[in-house]
Each structure stands twice: as C-alpha cells, then as structure tokens.
C-alpha cells in the first residue's frame, strides 16, 4: 500500500495541482500581504527618497515566459515612480520579445497618472549588441539608442535633452529572468557606480543576496511575492488605487504552497513508515 503510494503515477500529482490552482482562481479568494521582505522594503525606500524629476531607468530583461512574475513588478514600480513625479526611461537591454509588453504597460500606467510621453517618460526598446551597449550608455545613451521605439530621434524627446548618460540617472532597475544581473552589477555598478536594483524571478532570488549584502544593489523584488509586497506598500501610501496581479496571485499561490508542503510532509511520513516496515522485515 505504502509502496504503491510512494510510486504513484505523477499524473495524479498533476491533477491535484490543477485542482488546487483552479479552485481558488475561480473563487477569487483574496489573501492580502501584510509583512514585507527586507529586500523589497529597501528598494521602496530608495525610490521613496527621490525628489520629483529624478530619473529612473527600467530595463526589461524578460520575455513572455516570465511575464507572470515580472510584469506585476513593472506595474507596481511604474505606479510608484509616476505618483512621485519621477521621470522613467524604459529599455530592453538583453531580451527583444518584451518590447511590446513593456511599451503597452508604460503607456497604460502613465495614462492613469496623467503623464505624457516625452516629458515624463520614454521607451527606447531593444538594440542588439549586449555588453557594448551597457558600456556605451555610460558615455552617451544616444550612441546606443539614436531613436526610441516610435522612431523618434532622442533630441526630439524633451526629457532626454537633459539625460546624457548614467550620470543623470538616479536609479536603474533591472527586471530580469535571464542572466543579465551580473552584467549590470559588474559593469554598470562596478564601472560607473550607478545605483542599481533588481526585480527577479523566484529561481534567481537566492543567488543575488550576496550582491545586496555587498552594497552593489539597493534592493531586490523577489518574484510575484515581491510584486504583491510592492503593491501593498504603494497602496498603503495612497499612490494608486489599482489592485495589482501580485495580490490576486498571492491567494492562489498560498493554496498551492499549502498543497506542496502537505505533499512533501505526506511523502516523508510514508517514506519513514516504509523504511521502518522494511527494517522490521529484515
């Protein structure tokens, strides 16, 4: 019996997961976040300390595959920046298939805060090249991006007239699902002492804590939970009334985590009973 349970067809597990994810998703059970991870709070505090008019650059280094985790982070960050009257530049340094995702979200959130393209924010998109682009932006952004996504020359974008390179940018946030953070840390922080923060997928969180401890970055948003925490912080400060995808996701995620913990506990109990039975027989 125990043996059978331990070697259960994995499709039964799949079915359990499917049920646990669909039921709370349909019932829309809300689970609010009420404690904030340190790394999220640090990023929030950094942005909160900025004066109106300061510039934040957000690099979207993720594709549609990780959109579920990082897009809510982008939304929350944009709400915070626009509500605080900061100016925002969007780029896609490493990944080209998120240009449209980012651009649409920038336009949507900007509209909610009454911000206009050009003076308040702009979107520069993707350019092939990799590392040379990161380094050259330290000298002159327009040498990498002569034009934005709308094919408009950078000199025709009001905010970009005063922003030449990293010297004029207060914070760069890299939202990453690929291996881009080490490049931003080693070359942009290392070479230009640019203040840097990260929003990353769950898989990457742990490996970036050393950089946070060493002061190379000022904060990390940990996956969808980071988005939910950030949404809580900006709603608490009355920066936005819009409920984000992070908070909605937390309800479903909580149930899935409960299911997974129960599965692990259950299979361990079964494992120990089985081991004891075997040693008894032997």
């Amino acid at each position: 019996m125990i043996q059978k349970l331990l070697s259960l067809d994995r499709r039964w597990i799949f079915l359990i997961i499917a049920v646990v994810v669909f039921v709370p998703a349909i019932l829309k059970i809300p689970v609010p976040v009420s404690t904030i991870s340190n790394s999220t709070q640090q990023l929030y505090d950094t942005i909160e300390g900025f004066e109106p008019g300061e510039v934040v650059m957000i690099s979207l280094d993720y594709g549609p595959s990780s959109m579920a985790e990082l897009q809510p982070q982008l939304t929350a960050l944009l709400h915070h920046c626009f509500a605080k009257d900061l100016r925002v530049i969007g780029i896609n340094w490493a990944v080209f298939d998120s240009v449209l995702l980012g651009q649409n979200e920038f336009d949507r959130v900007a509209r909610l805060h009454g911000k206009t393209y050009g003076p308040d924010y702009c979107y520069l998109g993707y350019k092939p090249g990799g590392l040379p682009n990161l380094l050259d932006m330290g000298k002159d952004i327009s040498s990498v991006y002569p034009k934005d996504v709308h094919n408009k020359s950078l000199t025709d974008i009001p905010m970009m007239k005063a922003i030449k390179n990293y010297d004029h940018i207060s914070l760069v946030v890299d939202l990453a699902s690929v291996g881009s953070p080490p490049f931003w840390i080693n070359y942009v922080y290392g070479r230009f002492q640019q203040t840097l923060a990260l929003g990353v997928t769950g898989v990457m969180i742990s490996e970036l804590y050393p950089a946070l401890d060493a002061g190379q970055i000022v904060g990390i948003l940990p996956g969808l939970l980071g988005a939910a925490e950030y949404e809580y912080l900006i709603q608490d400060a009355n920066y936005t009334m819009e409920g984000g995808d992070g908070a909605t996701g937390m309800g479903i995620q909580s149930f899935l985590h409960v299911a997974l913990i129960l599965i692990i506990v259950f299979c361990n109990i079964a494992f120990f009973i089985d081991r004891r039975n075997r040693s008894n027989i032997a």
Partner: peptide
C-alpha cells in the same frame, strides 16, 4: 511561450513528491 514554462510548476511538484525526502 508562457504556457511552455508554466508546465514546470507541475514537474517541480512531482519532483518534490518523489525526491524530496
């Protein structure tokens, strides 16, 4: 793209069931 990667949630669950002891 998004659905291909979301399959991993199922596989990590079955891996946890089989190997996490």
């Amino acid at each position: 793209d998004a659905t291909m990667f979301s399959l991993l949630a199922f596989f990590i669950a079955s891996a946890a069931y089989r190997a996490f002891r």
